[in-house]
Amino acid sequence: MSDKLFLHGKPIEGFEEVHEHISPVSSYMKVFGALLVLTALTYAVSYMNLGAASLAVAMFVAVIKATLVCMYFMHLKYDERYHVFVFLSTILFVGIFFTFTLFDLSSRDEINEEQDSFFQRQYAPEAGVSVPVYEVSEHGEGAEHAEGGEAKAEGH
């Protein structure tokens, strides 16, 4: 082992020991209390009729609880910043995953409609085919051909 260790060109002192911030027991107890209060709050909120806002409120409280656990129990507050970066970039990618998928789902009806009318304008009149009508039944069993037999034979 060398006598001197360098990190980013600077010598580091005391590399023989593990340097970690040691939180006092009282700080863990405070976080514990806060988590219990927030759990009770989530529970109480679910009995109020907040309608559409209840999901937002529940998620907001859950995010506060998660932040407390990450910062104090998982030591991210005192840890190397790089671990915070790893964790937050994970959350960022989860966000991208959620946003794009939900965006796709919520805009899909519109696109399907556009596709259908495009098909109708372009091919249906001349070809004399009946355009398949996709119906999503109440039970969500997916696309059902109402009168699509002919078009299927022609097109695909």
Binding site: N49, S54, L55, A58, M59, A62, K65, A66, V69
Partner: peptide, 14 residues
């Protein structure tokens, strides 16, 4: 952490 999100979503949310 995961349970913190699972609990309100599955059990509580109206």
């Amino acid at each position: 952490l995961i349970w913190i999100f699972l609990f309100p979503l599955l059990y509580l949310v109206k």
